[in-house]
């Protein structure tokens, strides 16, 4: 029950972070929102592991923690090497 409540809270904040990723005026707002979504996804995975009583989810959470950093750094390096785009490119 208590894990369920915490999961709801984390999912609400995941939704808010997703709104920021969609709104975000610059590219870096979106990358930041992506990073936060990654952290929240790790927490959701851990909590779901407790809700369903299956601790295997924690292994996925560990992997996702590492991938989250790699993903953020990779995106930033990609945009550092290409032409800087500030403010973000207009919608196609």
């Amino acid at each position: 029950m208590m894990f369920f409540a915490a999961t709801i809270a984390v999912l609400v904040s995941l939704g808010l972070a997703l709104v920021r990723a969609l709104l975000g005026p610059t590219l870096f707002d979106r990358v930041l929102a992506g990073n936060t979504i990654g952290t929240l996804a790790v927490l959701t995975l851990a909590l779901i592991g407790f809700v369903t009583g299956r601790p295997e989810f924690l292994d996925i959470a560990i992997l996702y923690t590492l991938l989250n950093l790699i993903g953020t750094i990779a995106v930033l390096r990609y945009f550092k090497l290409s032409e800087p785009v500030v403010p973000a490119a207009p919608e196609e």
Partner: peptide, 8 residues
């Protein structure tokens, strides 16, 4: 978590 994303 909610406070942080509301701040965002």
């Amino acid at each position: 978590c909610v406070i942080g994303t509301v701040g965002m």
